[in-house]
Every structure is written in C-alpha cells, then in structure tokens.
Design a protein around this nucleic acid. Sequence first.
DNA 1: TCGCGGCGTGCAAACGATTGCGGTGACCTC
DNA 2: GAGGTCACCGCAATCGTTTGCACGCCGCGA
Lengths: 349, 349
Amino acid sequence: MAPAMETGRGPDRATLKDVAALAGVHPGTASRAINVDTRDLVNEETARRVLAAADELGYRPNPIARGLKTSRSYTVGVLIPDLTNPLFPRIVRGIQDKLEESGYIPLIANTDNDPARERADIEAMRARQVDGLITATAHRHDDLAIDGAGGELPVVLVNRRHEQGTRPSVVADDRLGVRLAIEHLVALGHRRIAHLAGPQDLSTGYLRLQGYREALADAGIEYDDELVLAADAFVEEEGQRLCNELLDRGLEVTAIFAGNDLMALGCYDAFVARGIVCPDQISVVGFNDMPFAAWFDPPLTTVHLPQYEIGERAAELLLERLRDPAAEPTQMLLEPTLAVRGSTAPPAG
Amino acid sequence: MAPAMETGRGPDRATLKDVAALAGVHPGTASRAINVDTRDLVNEETARRVLAAADELGYRPNPIARGLKTSRSYTVGVLIPDLTNPLFPRIVRGIQDKLEESGYIPLIANTDNDPARERADIEAMRARQVDGLITATAHRHDDLAIDGAGGELPVVLVNRRHEQGTRPSVVADDRLGVRLAIEHLVALGHRRIAHLAGPQDLSTGYLRLQGYREALADAGIEYDDELVLAADAFVEEEGQRLCNELLDRGLEVTAIFAGNDLMALGCYDAFVARGIVCPDQISVVGFNDMPFAAWFDPPLTTVHLPQYEIGERAAELLLERLRDPAAEPTQMLLEPTLAVRGSTAPPAG
DNA sequence: TCGCGGCGTGCAAACGATTGCGGTGACCTC
DNA sequence: GAGGTCACCGCAATCGTTTGCACGCCGCGA
C-alpha cells in the first residue's frame, strides 16, 4: 500500500516547526523571535539564529493558522457599488497599495447598490473573518447592512460621511467642489446655470445639490427650481434623459453642472442629437474627473477628486482602527480641485 | 481581577462543538452531517437533528479553521497588471460575478508588470491558501512566477495563451481582431498603414504585430519595416512618442493601427500638437474598445473585445479545474468585433 | 448460539501558529 | 553560601474543523 493521500500541496512549505528545528529551539520560541513585537522576549542571539533559519528555509508564516489562533485574517473587505464605474478603480488601487504595506489584502465585492447583494457580500466577508470593512456604498440612509451586519467589525466609510459621526470616513469635500465649479462658471459670465443632480438618496447626489444652492446664493444668483432635475442613477443615460428634459423646457440656460462625469457625458449625447455645440452654445461641468476626461469631445471641465489618495487614506484609517479599536473616529475631508478644460466657455452672445 | 482577555470578537459565533452539543452528538459527527459530501456517512435522522441545531444557533462554519485542515479556502487569486488600466475592470467584474455563483471570492492583486511584485503577490496568495489563480499578466516568456511559484496550483491564463498549451486560457483572437482593423482600413482605401506596436515581450503586443503582417500580406500590401515601431509599454505616452517619431520620418502614412486604445490616444495628442486633423488627414484604429472610447475626440474606431465574457470564461475554466484537476486544459478563443467610429475615414486626396 | 459484516459514531490526532505559565540557569546581594 | 531576581526559553493548551481508525451494536446466516 502506498503512503497515499499527500494532503499538502506543493513543495511542502516550511513550517514554524521546521524553522525551530533548524535553529535548535522550540517552536514557541521561534514564533516569538519571528513576530516583531514579541521579539524582545527572546535573546538577541537566539532571535538572529531563528531569523536566519527562517530565511534559509524561505519560511512564510501561514496567515490561516495564525488567524485561527488570533482570529485575525489580515484581510479586509472592500465594498464598492461597481468596479466598472470609472470612479472606483483608482480608489481601490489606493486601498490595495496601502493595505499591502501592512501585510493586509483586500477582498473586493461589487454591490451594484443592491442591499440584498450587499448583505450577502458582507456575510461572505464575515465568514472569511475579515478584520475590517471599507465601504463605498453611498446610501444616505444606511439603516441597512453596514453598521448592522458590520456588527463588531471596524468599518470605514468612503465617499460618504456617517451622519452620526460615529464611524471614521474619508470623503472629498463635495460642497467645496461644487463651489469651485459654480464659481468658475460665474466667473465666465454664466448666470443661468442648471444642475442635473444625482440620486438624492445617495449622499453624493444630495450634498452636491446642497452645494449648488449654497454656491449660487453666495454668487448672488437666485435659485430656480426649474433648473434642477434629479437622476435615478449616476449614469450616462440619466444624464441624457435629464438634459433633454431640461432643454425641452425651453428655458434660457447657458451652463449645466452635472452630478458627475457620466451624466455630463449624457449631456454631450443630448447635444449631439440636437446639434448643439458645446461649449460655444452651452457649457458643461462634470464631477469626479474620471480617467480620460481630457480626451472627450470636448475635453471635460470637471471637479477633480484625489481618488487614489482617498483610497489610501481610507486604508490608513482602517489600519489605525485595527491597531486601536477604541480610537476616535476620524472624519477626513479631502480637497478637490477644478480641472478646467474645453467644455466651458463664456456664454454665447 | 476581572476575567480579562475576551479574545473572540462579537457575539460569540456558534462553533461546531456548540452545534454538536445541542444535537447531542460528537463534533466529528456534526461535521460529517453538515458537510454535504460526507452527509451520507451519518444516519439520516441524526443529520436532521444536527442541521436543525446548526440552524437554530445560526451556525456558520469557520472557513479559516476549515482551511487550516483542508488547505482549501474557497478563495482564488486574481493577478492583473493594473486595475486602473481600463481594460481590466470589466474582466475582473466578469470573474467576480462568476466565482460568486459558486461561493468563491477573488483576491485581487496588481502586479504592475513587475516580476518582483508578482512573486510577492503570488506568495501572499499562496499563504492565504487560494485554491487557484487567474492571471492576466501578459509576459510572453513566463519563466517567472506563474507556473513556477504557482506550483501545484491550478492556474488559468487570461489575455495570453500558454505557449506549451499545458495551461487553460482564455484570450481574444488577436489575429482576427487585427485583421478586422486592417481590412477596414484597406476597404476605406488605405495602403500606407503604420503600426505602433505594443511591447514585444507581452504576448498581446507580439501577436498583434504578427497579425498586422499577415493581414497586410493577405491584402496584398507589402510590409514596410519603416512603418512599424514598438512601444515599451501600452500607455498614452508611448503612443505619443512613437507617433511623433513616425511622423518625423516624413513618410507617407494615411493610417495608424495602434497597439491598443491608450496608444491611440497618444496619437491623438501628437496630432493635436502638430495640428493634424484626424480622421481627415490620418486615420487611427485602436484595440480593446475601452470604456468611453465612443466619446473621445474623435470617437475611436477600435477592435472590441468581450471583456466581461473573457472574465466569466476564465472563472468558469478555473472552477472546472478545481472540480477536476486532471481535466484537459481548454484553450478558449473569443471573437472580437470591430467598432467603427469616427477616427477612420478614406485617405485624404 | 456464535460469528461476522456493516452501519453509525465517538475518539483523538492532526493543521500551523500563538501564548500563559512555569522552570532553569546565571548573576547579584546580603 | 543561601536566597532572590531576572532573562530566556520550553511546555502544552488552544483556535475550529476534518478525518482515519476503532468500537459497539444490530441483524442475519450457519
């Protein structure tokens, strides 16, 4: 009978026991020597020997085993609405890179803004013992999963602030971003500025509309309800639909501030269909500065968000939280800038 | 002294032992009852009791503990060069969605096409006991990590075929894609078609150049070495650099076939700087059909790849492999199409 | 009546690490 | 020289599951 059942896979990985044997110490000691924050419990010389042995064997601790004991997985869940939305890859990249520095790795799930999916994703993540959660799902009224199912998990919010302020978060300053956009248009001479707002149940959609009203007021322009339409989703189709609706009203409008870049693109579509030339006849400003916005026709003037940095900061906040769960929940506000390109110009006439 | 050291987190999750106790059986038995493919080892009635108990306690197996023993994690590693490259989000999305159907979850890492990072990523993934790997890193000579460090891990290749054919893979038919592009240009009347090729050590860069030569030959056009330049990377800057270099040669060129969309965008930049109008004076075709290519200035004619489907298929292949590691390695070839837009027109004159 | 073949279960050893506790020396002090 | 301190390290339990093995029991055939 053959030995059979080679359970392990691959060229048997060195285990702590192997290292210990090679170094001539007990596995427990080896463990202490290898783990930096217990290293000073062992003799310096011994530690050196263990480290050398580990190095020689190419030892890599097994996070699974470690996790079983410590109930840590060195894994964090990242919830985003949709990876193919151009806003997210950079944020995610920022998260990944920062986590990686500390030996963590993200588990990424797309919720499609569907609460059911979101719940399922969170469940799958908890099952995998994620140590924390970063969520970029932007519902404004989040009685749903997150804080609840997140349970005792450290959570950091991205792209949306926790209204009670009890969770750490990192968001771009939407109000400021809007202000920059509006001020730019006003400086160009625009007074009739429409706003195609995002969904009002998403915090970004909501805040930008608020910002729009404020900025208008500060510029001494009266708010006109007729000039504001709210979308069902942050997508091109909605931008196009709303833009058409707006133009159909036959109002005098010289500029449009779109809820995000995708919606701005929808405006472009509407213009093309109607033979309207942007920016000659009408100006458009977007939001997010999605990749390649500079190559659009015309190049899109838009509010630039430090997306990568947003991701990095979020990861940092979470790591901090993991180290000290009792830390004060930091609310981080990142500053947007305005990328002025070809879709804005002084009003015609 | 207080009890101290509440090691577990949250409302102590029910463990197998709890379930067993409630059902009045041994943990081992409970394990068998709960795992579907050992369920028939235990009495039907007992199994029912165990399941009921598990249900009542809201028991969820701990994948970490399970993984420690079985060295399976229901997790697969996904290696891509860079998530912010617009080619990848859709592929990844396809992978995620398909994996999710089977209870798997992906671990995503960006290698930046850096072998060292790649190795580290693979190491991190193996450490986390991923059950398999999907890799979209496109090196042509892959004596590196993948198959090696992949060791005994099932691997499926995306976006690149294994030259020895010993690994399953799913790729778009690059040759066909190129053919479509060239035929389109030829049909428009172009004969002097340059190619700004991608890096020749990446399989996509290499294959597209091959396809270019073939398609040219089939169209009865002589291959001219002067019209071909190879990039160091698939990025705008390289496209721009090469395009400038090409134009500086002062050759008669009426169309450019770019290695991918990003490089095509680089051409746009070069044109703008030189006051060249596309497509009036020169036509450009890209490759990949990246998101929003239709909104570029001019809208980019490009080879469309079924990106989401590529991801799905890759996931399927891997799942298949996980079920039956001995299965024949399927090599899947997906058909591209040509998206004709505004960057191509008959040659001037 | 005895033996035997299953079935169903319990037992306990893994998996690879972490960690409280206790023990052994070396060194110091009185 | 006895006793105490302290640094260092080994021991073994533990985390939650899986799984080979053995055992008890029941029924059946001889």
